[in-house]
């Protein structure tokens, strides 16, 4: 599923946004809301359907001055996929 060229995007059933009242990024969906922790929010913010997973990882590593984030990002995306939060652009 997560070949290096696939580009994750937020599933159309969900809306990703910053919620001031929660001081957190959230995913809104019919009759529900998932409140995301900071790293989940930062990852999903970059799931714009244009960037590949390695690009997202590189971007996060630059932004947070960190390295070796790939396993964490991939594990999260796998979970997000299982929850239907994201879809994959492959063309």
């Amino acid at each position: 599923m997560t070949e290096n060229t696939a580009r994750p995007a937020i599933h159309r059933l969900f809306r990703f946004q910053w919620e001031p009242a929660q001081q957190a990024h959230v995913l809104l969906y019919p009759e529900g809301m998932v409140k995301l922790n900071q790293s989940a929010g930062e990852i999903l913010k970059r799931c714009d359907g244009a960037r590949t997973v390695p690009e997202i990882v590189a971007d996060l590593e630059t932004a947070f001055n960190a390295s070796g984030l790939a396993p964490e990002v991939e594990a999260f995306l796998e979970m997000a996929d299982a929850q239907n939060w994201i879809t994959w652009n492959t063309d």
Binding site: E19, P20, A21, Q22, V26, L28, E31, G32, M33
Partner: peptide, 8 residues
């Protein structure tokens, strides 16, 4: 304004 996010 109170933080509601779902509008049905």
């Amino acid at each position: 304004a109170l933080g509601a996010a779902q509008f049905g």
